[in-house]
Simulated scan of single mutants.
Amino acid sequence: MFSKACEYGIRASIFIATKSSKGIRVGIKDVAKEIDSPEPFTAKIMQILTKNGIIESSKGVGGGFEVSDNAVKSIKLIQIVDAIDGDTIYKGCGIGLKECSEIKPCPVHKEFKKVRELLLEMLTNTTLEQLASGVKTGDFFLRINDRE
């Protein structure tokens, strides 16, 4: 559903938020390892997230990535998705046509419109804090081997 970059961006944001809640900044190597992503690809994703104000970055000794307490409460999942993938996932055609509308619908338009609306609602109403809290409590996992 999401691009690989977006999936990694969501995972990275959640991981960084969980560490930030403990006052810990994380480096690119730790982020890449935690989200199981190649380091150069992770660095590009982190640049996008930083540029869009989702993640904060500081250089030097003790530097790394973090999310402020205020930001983690206000950042919505839609902001991460928009920053990396744009809005086509919840606005675009279900089968990828350039033009698809109520007037000229594609074969899946009617049903896919319902899916898009539900997805948009979830992305708009889910905060980074909600996702990070679930990981901290053990209700959610970022990696399969965390269950062991």
Rank of each mutant, 00 (worst) to 15 (best):
I55N: 07
I45R: 01
G60A: 02
I45W: 09
S13A: 14
N52E: 15
D36P: 00
G60S: 00
G62R: 02
G64L: 04
P38T: 08
K51F: 12
G62V: 11
N70C: 07
G23A: 00
V61S: 10
N70E: 15
I78F: 08
Q79M: 09
T18G: 00
G53P: 00
I80E: 13
A43R: 09
I35S: 07
A17R: 02
S74T: 15
K29C: 11
K29N: 15
G62T: 05
I35D: 11
P38R: 08
M46C: 03
A17F: 06
I35Y: 05
V31N: 01
E39I: 10
S13I: 10
S13N: 09
S57K: 13
G63N: 04
S58N: 04
K73F: 08
I16Q: 02
P40I: 12
Q47N: 12
V31D: 06
K76D: 15
I80C: 09
V81M: 05
A43I: 09
K76S: 13
I16S: 03
R25T: 14
D36G: 04
R25W: 11
P38M: 09
I24M: 01
L49Q: 04
G53N: 06
Q79H: 09
K59L: 13
T18Q: 04
F41V: 15
S13M: 11
P40Q: 03
K73Y: 07
K19I: 10
G63V: 08
A71F: 03
G60Q: 02
F41I: 15
V26W: 02
V72H: 00
K44G: 14
V72R: 06
N70H: 09
N52G: 01
F15H: 08
